[in-house]
Design a protein around this nucleic acid. Sequence first.
DNA 1: ATGAAAGCGCTAACAC
DNA 2: GTGTTAGCGCTTTCAT
Lengths: 344, 344
Amino acid sequence: MTRKNTRHQHLTLRDVSEASGVSEMTVSRVLRNRGDVSDKTRAKVIEAAKKLGYVPNKIAGALASNRVNLVAVIVPSLSNLVFPEMMAGVDEILGDTPLQPVIGTTNYDPAKEEKTLFEMLSWRPSGVIIAGLEHTDASRAMLANCGVPVVEVMDVDGDPVDAAVGISHWRAGYQVGTEIVARGYRRVGVLGTKVDGDHRARKRLEGLERALAEAGVTVADHMAYSGWSGFAKGREMTKAMLERTPDLDFLFYTNDLTGAGGLLYALEMGLDVGDTLGLAGFNAFTLLDGLPRKLATVDSRRREAGQVAARIVAGTHVFDSEDRRIELVPTFIPGDTLRPVRID
Amino acid sequence: MTRKNTRHQHLTLRDVSEASGVSEMTVSRVLRNRGDVSDKTRAKVIEAAKKLGYVPNKIAGALASNRVNLVAVIVPSLSNLVFPEMMAGVDEILGDTPLQPVIGTTNYDPAKEEKTLFEMLSWRPSGVIIAGLEHTDASRAMLANCGVPVVEVMDVDGDPVDAAVGISHWRAGYQVGTEIVARGYRRVGVLGTKVDGDHRARKRLEGLERALAEAGVTVADHMAYSGWSGFAKGREMTKAMLERTPDLDFLFYTNDLTGAGGLLYALEMGLDVGDTLGLAGFNAFTLLDGLPRKLATVDSRRREAGQVAARIVAGTHVFDSEDRRIELVPTFIPGDTLRPVRID
DNA sequence: ATGAAAGCGCTAACAC
DNA sequence: GTGTTAGCGCTTTCAT
């Protein structure tokens, strides 16, 4: 059986070679701008390729050259805004390179992460960008042995396999805690998610609790929700919490969206937001700029984390030290939902 | 030069074969659960593979089998929430299949789309999911000839290359227009984006204008912004527009986020939202549920579009007719920012 | 149930 | 500047 010319048989270098009367090798060189090829030959080849509608086969190219321009990007979910934002940072940087992101999601499940990772590594990507520092032992082993740059993003509280870029969520939480006590709040309620595998939210809370503890304050009430974050969830939870613990003077939301819902609710209830009741969220979603009051929050710098991670993978990042942990500073944004710092 | 055992030399089937004393072929069968292999052999192979930490090479596998479990997903941007939401729908469905999404962005630029598409097709994906129906001729040719399912998503106003899934933005706009005139509004302002390649926003507007025209109404003012959508943009533009055209009785925002900003502004100004000034956005972002008033909007059903597209690519979707255009219905949600329909 | 041989479409390395 | 040869690591096919 000879080469079929059925509709969807892909064209090969050989087809271009025959059509242009040039060897496959030279065609290959032209199509990759490699080595010296005369202008005349180049023109012939390019014309033939275009006329035929030739699309190179990177599978074959990758196998032959042992080079794959794919980057594995592994995140818990696409439904939580922070991950697409990080990916937008990655994409922005990779746009200037030949690299292409391949996306895998884990649904906050370490076992699924392990499967996804195995799957993606079998494509022999040129780099791996993965959210978080907590993985199964098997995942860590794969990351350690895959032989390409691995960047764990959006967290630096822990031991990275290779490189890590992001904020310290513990320190971010700690900072929020110090701001809370410095402003004289003492009855703190926390509203967060129920997601088990959300280590970043957990670390934020631990940092917060630590800062409070150092001032002799403990979290007075805590409430966790499951499902999607949004204003409505923030409203409901705020209402419920203030009903069951009316003497709270501060509410910390682990997410700006629920925080914004709480803010809207508190304003409608006529509460003295800021003074009697301080509020703070987390993440600094720019789409929320323009609320009736600016919610206090912390910029978790996920977009930059994605950018730096992409640069590391692309090989254009220069590390300042031998430490391959890059800690971004989580800017605290006081907004208009806190009272001034007390100078005792 | 014989096989090197340097640290990052990847393991091959051969290594597993040698370690287990079984032929490469049988190892391959075990690792893919193909064909008959005795339990004893199977166990030996699996143990050896695990012990060595073998990760198969899909590049080689794909070349040999001519099967690639990648799906190309091409969107204008990751910064506009609607695209990650569509991708979440895709991801949800592909999660139950061996398929993996590869992401490409176009930045609303047809030339970049063409490049991205070429790049992605050279991986010989098993399917293509691409936002919109407007592409360069070269892009359309590539899509038509790539030999795998192609689904154009989030729009059905046009001729798809293969299949299309989404709402008709024209009809969605038209419906908003009929609602506006049915409620007696006559001085309509439109607030949209400046993005050139945003055909969906354009079609929405055209549909809106048509419905208004049929009632003898024309758009009284129009304003376009560039940059990111958010509440702040909505506030600014609303203020500016109401100052330059104070007699408007309706504002249509091509995006919920700016719409929400406008709503907040109008409420603060003490405007009689609903009756004196009707407001509507677009997209029905669930994260906005819980605003002081529910903004009228239209559900553009992007998540479902992603789901259906993924099913088509995965081959699990059954078409009702020979028409491979699947039109989703853009639910109109009146919210609390419109006055009642007039029954004249 | 297992193995041997051939080859997927390309590129590295070398020849001319 | 251009061509030839020999694989890359798998899977297909066919033999046993």
